[in-house]
Design a protein around this nucleic acid. Sequence first.
DNA 1: TCCAAGAACTGAATGACATTCAGTTTGAGG
DNA 2: CCTCAAACTGAATGTCATTCAGTTCTTGGA
Lengths: 210, 210
Amino acid sequence: MARPRKEQELDIARRAVEETIRLLAQQGDFDVPLTSVAQAVGCTAPALYGHFRNKNALLRAARDEGFGRLYNEKFAVFEQMRGDPFGYLRDGSYAYARFALENPTLYRLMFSPPPKLGVSDDPWSSEAGRQVLSLLLTGLRSSQEHGYLPGADLQRYGFMFWSTIHGAVSLNIQNRLLDHAAKWDSTQSVIDALMEMIAATGPAKHPITS
Amino acid sequence: MARPRKEQELDIARRAVEETIRLLAQQGDFDVPLTSVAQAVGCTAPALYGHFRNKNALLRAARDEGFGRLYNEKFAVFEQMRGDPFGYLRDGSYAYARFALENPTLYRLMFSPPPKLGVSDDPWSSEAGRQVLSLLLTGLRSSQEHGYLPGADLQRYGFMFWSTIHGAVSLNIQNRLLDHAAKWDSTQSVIDALMEMIAATGPAKHPITS
DNA sequence: TCCAAGAACTGAATGACATTCAGTTTGAGG
DNA sequence: CCTCAAACTGAATGTCATTCAGTTCTTGGA
């Protein structure tokens, strides 16, 4: 029993990442046995070593895929909101929070990875996070051009903005006493408070309705 | 070779927690082998099972100890700042951030614990976090009595305040490209921005100097 | 069409650990 | 002094990750 039929050529790498993300969500924890990933894919554990140097590399790939998905969701909102930077900041933040609350374990893998993943060695990983941040900065810059946050240091405010949302999402994910709806309400409340503060700096009469 | 001399009666439990925290910091990761904790304490791994149900219980104890230390540091600032609630908010936040940046792995264990720790089952753990939050709320309440944040919903602002600082600290801990000083500067900048916003709502003439 | 080379897997072996268990030694009460 | 229970220990078990020596397809040339 060895080399399989030609049908499933390069599927293993893609499927392994996919199944890893699924198992991550299912088990709610990082320590997914390689064996179960292999079983879900339909091969044996050693076969995965032909596609990933080791388990950490597989988790890194899952993490990168997570950043890709998050970026895509934020980018979709970005395009849909062209011309309304304030609306983008709000709905982009909602999208970010929704992604985090719907994929809590993946989100934790993205933003609180075990150091042994060797994330710092991989230029890609910090790049992916940077792309998400740059999308936020673009939104802030546009908002500033529309009269909000006059004279503010965007780098500084951008980081604070991100910190607030990341913090709210992290604390809510961690709090097991809350159900999904309560986590969402709590996070949304923080985002709304943040948007109110930005709205207060801008041209009057901007409704906060979502 | 079995039961040791009477000298080190109940030291093992205490020392195990201490050494675990030390090894956590040294290895920068949660998966500290029980064997190394035992070795550091001066016993064998099975001996630890007489004091902790399992490794997760030991990590939970280390986590609780972390909350205790954080609370003590914040409480010290609190007592030292009686009568200056705004100053307490600022210096208490600095103390919080300093604790997190100086004990990054312990902080991660406290706020992004692996679900398998079974933290949710333990009423103590959420209690410890709640005590830290209540200290913040007391500071906000006092600040409000001194004229800041007039009419604000403190529960809501308290959570946003905590989210911002926790987020800034988490993102800075995670960013391996920054050295310690840079992480501190970045975090301090977020805290200062937050304090400026609160100061802006209060009685005029409050200097922001630290 | 047939064949050699190597790609892509597999089963079995190795090594870390956590956890359990059957002793073994020592302190304390009678 | 003697018995008992507490507090440990060494050895055994089980769960992974990772490695390795085969084994079986696929492919490109004769």
